[in-house]
Structures are given as structure tokens and as C-alpha cells.
Amino acid sequence: MRCLWITRQDPRPADSGELIYTLGLLRSLAAQPGIELTVLAHKAAKPTEGGPELRWELHGTIPSGRLKSLPAKLPGDAYRLGNPLQREVLARLLPETWDWIIIDQAACAWALDLLGPEQKVMYLAHNHEASVRKQVAGDRGGSLPMRMALKWDSWKYGRMEGALARRANLISAITPRDADAFALDAPGVPIFVLKPGYGGEIPQGPPRPITAETPRQVVLAGAFEWLAKRRNLEAFLQAAAEPFQAAKIGFQVVGKADPAWFTALARQYPWASFQANVPSVTPFLDQARIGLIPEALGGGFKLKALDYIFRGLPLASVEAALSGVPVDPRSEAIAAPDPESLAEAVAAKIDDLAFLNHAAGKALENCRSAFHWEDRGVTLARALENPQALRP
């Protein structure tokens, strides 16, 4: 089976959630018998060697200049990704025989107008972008021109993704909630859930105990490059300022970010600690009692949840962000509907060691065998071989 996989950029190095997901699926699918993969993408800004042995078509780097997309029919991401060089290479590749064209993320739907009706298309979704972009655009942060531009871009994203879903012969969703949304967008199109795997060490024994000697600290690890991620952090910092300081709770934010932005946040919130672009988040996870998922804005599967769980941390999360994570939000995590109530719930539970250890143990037990990349390759290959078997 020959597949042409169209994605944003070379996922090596996989230093963000979207790249981890793409590279994990590429590796696991390429390992399946009879699969031949060609990947069309931009070059990575800082490429690394290694990864699956397949055919890489890497051309140019992602252009800047979202403002140029305002008068275009495509949203900003798709406009930049579907630049003349990428279109030229895709036009060269399409005459080859392909069993599937895989559109990895909605932003790569720029390719649709080059595809013929005879070509089978899979939409490999990382989010239900129409919902996520509308949610982000509805947030009141930023200037009026910025909010207007986001709403315009959101409308274009919704229109583009809807066209992609209806054109697709197969859709994968990263969470059950996203799968339900796509079923409304594209009735009759086969849809299946394709959660991420986990590439780190999965402990076979119980998690390390959380004791009175464990620092009374909450950690938030992640990549903070997308606007929604930054707004989520800023919203939680505002919500947690009073309850965390009153309870003398440490708050450590660590991950991929603009150091200048972290420095500005540290001045505004001196009670919290910020570490940008560290070699590893593991030492920070090992010095905390709780792993935080504050994403009130944005969808998708929260890969940081697996980092927390497999390092023995219980989750504290906005309820909507737990979609696809096999934990009971009532008894196996600290869950709340919004950042304000989540901050209060964390303050109330930070010293409940029995609960924290129970939640960490149950989460590890539930997830230990559920997130193997090898299984994802098998699932994806079977779906491509027989998408009709997925119909309800």
C-alpha cells in the first residue's frame, strides 16, 4: 500500500505535541508489512537525523507572514503551508500511483484543490479545528484588530475543515469528543479514534509515593508557542494567584517557550517559577505533587498527561481537557470546569496524600497498557485497508 503523507514539517526533532504525534504515527505505520510511505513537508528549522526509513520529500521552510493571508480564501496556517514550492512538489508527486493521500492536520488541506476525485483521502486530525479556532477567537484577550483577525481566520478554518471532512474517505480523530464532532460534519464518512502512544519509559511497578517530604509543588510542562497555549497559562496564573499564595503552593512552569515572555510572566507573577527550553522536564516532574492541565482553550489529546502519569503524578485538569485520558475525573484526578475552580480544588487537595497517591496509582494502572505506538500502527493500517469496516 503506497501512501503520500502531507504534513507541516519534518517532525524530527519531535519537540512539540503535534510533532510527537506525527512522528509516532509515521514510525508505527512504516513498520507495518506492505506499507510504503512518502512524506511531503517543509524542512525543520533545526533538523535531526534518525527516524523511520521512508521517502522524505522535504522542501523549504515554513514561510512567515500570516497577515498576507487575510484576503486569501485559506486561513493563515494553510496559506503559508500551501506555498508555491509545496504546490509544485505535490503536482510532481501526484501522477505516481497512490493508494491513499493522508492529510495530516487541517492546515494541510491546502492540497485539496490539487487532488483529483479518484484519489482516496484520509484526514488525520489533531483537533476538531473548527471548534478550537472558534473558541480561541471568542476569547476576549488581545486588541480589537487581533480579535477581528482571529474571528476571520476561524471562519475560514471552519469552512476549510468542513470541506476536508466531507471530501475525506476516512477520518481519524485524536479524542472521542472530536470523533463525535466530525460525525456531525461528515455523516457517513468512516471515523475512528487514534490516540497517541507514549515513547518514554512506562513503569511496571507502582508509582513513586507522594509523601509529606515531597515538595508542595504543582508543575505545568508543555510547549507554549501557540496563542491558545499562552492564553491558557495566563488565565490559570490569574486564577491561581490568590489560592496558591494563600496555601503556600509552589507553581513551576517549564517547557518550550519564548524566554522573554517567561521573563515577563515571572515579573508579573513572582510567586511562580518559569523555566524555558530545558533539556528535560523529568527533574521538574520528580519534584512535584501534581501535574497540571489548565487548557480551557484548545482541543486535542494532552500528551503532557502521559508524561505526568508515567512519572507518578496525579492529574489536575480542566474537565474538557481529559477527553481520551482513561481516568475517572471524579475519583482519579482533580478535575474542575474552569481555571478558577481548578485552582481552588488544587489548593484543597495539595495535602491530601491519600487521595494523591490513589489518583496517581489508578491513572498509572489504567494507562500502562493503553498507549503503545506499535498498536497505533496496526490500527491505522487496518483502517486504511478496510475503512468500511469502521462504519457503525
Rank of each mutant, 00 (worst) to 15 (best):
R330H: 12
E319Y: 14
L380N: 00
H372N: 14
L356D: 07
E365P: 02
K349M: 14
V327P: 01
I350Y: 03
H372P: 08
A381M: 08
H372C: 10
A348N: 14
V378T: 13
A381I: 09
A381K: 13
P339D: 07
L342G: 05
P314Q: 07
I334W: 08
E365N: 08
P326F: 00
D338Y: 12
A381E: 09
N366D: 02
F355C: 04
K362S: 03
L313W: 10
L353K: 10
L364M: 07
W373Q: 08
P387G: 08
D338Q: 14
K362V: 01
A354S: 15
A316V: 08
A336Q: 07
A370N: 09
L384F: 01
H358V: 07
I350L: 11
S331I: 11
E385S: 13
N357R: 12
L315D: 11
E340I: 14
P326H: 00
L313A: 05
A354I: 11
R368T: 05
S331Y: 01
R382Y: 06
A360C: 09
N357C: 07
E332M: 04
E385W: 04
P387I: 06
D375G: 13
A336P: 05
P329I: 04
D351W: 03
E374G: 07
S341M: 12
A359G: 10
N386W: 10
E365C: 06
A345E: 10
E344K: 15
L390T: 03
N357A: 11
P337A: 06
K349F: 07
